[in-house]
Design a protein around this nucleic acid. Sequence first.
DNA 1: ACTGATACTTTGAATATCAAATCAGTTGTA
DNA 2: TACAACTGATTTGATATTCAAAGTATCAGT
Lengths: 150, 150
Amino acid sequence: MSQKPSVKRINDKLIRVYSDILRMEEEELRKSQFRDLGIKEMHTIDAIGIHATPSSSDVAKKLHVTQGTLSVAINNLARKGYVERLHLESDKRVVNLRLSRKGRLMYRAHLAFHQKMVASFVKGFTEPQIELIERALDNLNEFIDEYRHH
Amino acid sequence: MSQKPSVKRINDKLIRVYSDILRMEEEELRKSQFRDLGIKEMHTIDAIGIHATPSSSDVAKKLHVTQGTLSVAINNLARKGYVERLHLESDKRVVNLRLSRKGRLMYRAHLAFHQKMVASFVKGFTEPQIELIERALDNLNEFIDEYRHH
DNA sequence: ACTGATACTTTGAATATCAAATCAGTTGTA
DNA sequence: TACAACTGATTTGATATTCAAAGTATCAGT
């Protein structure tokens, strides 16, 4: 059962990063002009994005929730004025989603926040060192992939 | 607004790690003998730990939830046989929490999972390189601290 | 023995979620 | 063309998680 001490230390740091980021985003939101949004709603806005008008099912897939869950979420975001539903003329079953002006503002604010966060993550490192850090993240993502495919 | 391309790349990788880890843990749980637990319940068990019998409010603090929320969570975990309430003789208001045998099993399974994850994170790196990765995590944690205290 | 503080529990409301039922529109085919 | 099967989205009913506020029990200081 003896592990390298760095494993426990890194685990603690990862957990701390992990559990604090969500809470920080939540607090940030509460102090902003977007007080009427929860963190899940923010991530829905993020998943819709500003560069396209994805279909409802595209966004559900991206967020790994059912279409029903997304439909409810969009009802709320539409009511609050962050998202609009667009009905495709070529296939009237499809609903595409577009951020309103307010939604795009929110999107950009959240993006800027993430960029500040990443900038601090790699602060003080040289390019080769940054590449090394990226390789560690790649390792983690590979681990997740392998785990998910048994 | 031009950013180093590595910022966007790293942001994407962080987000991917971030959003996949929770889902992976959830899936892992569903396939295990602990099917009757949700991810939140697992983290509550993790916060109680096997090395002590923390009070209810200690655990609530650690999880950043209210005592009311924790009280409800403990009701469910006690009903499912993972946690026991202990009443301190010296102060009858205090409720200490202890994992049952089943709870300790769950705790160890989750710990082992985390250790595999961290091992993969630093796989193929030398000690000095691992220290560098730790410094990046420290940076991120400092950023979070600063952000939270304005 | 009061009074106020402390530790916890219960309750009611809000949100997020899924599965199943439903609705509307499209596609394939007899 | 007509109709069955399919597809994309929505609604609904049930369950989870959470918080704030009210309630209960106990303790500590005067």
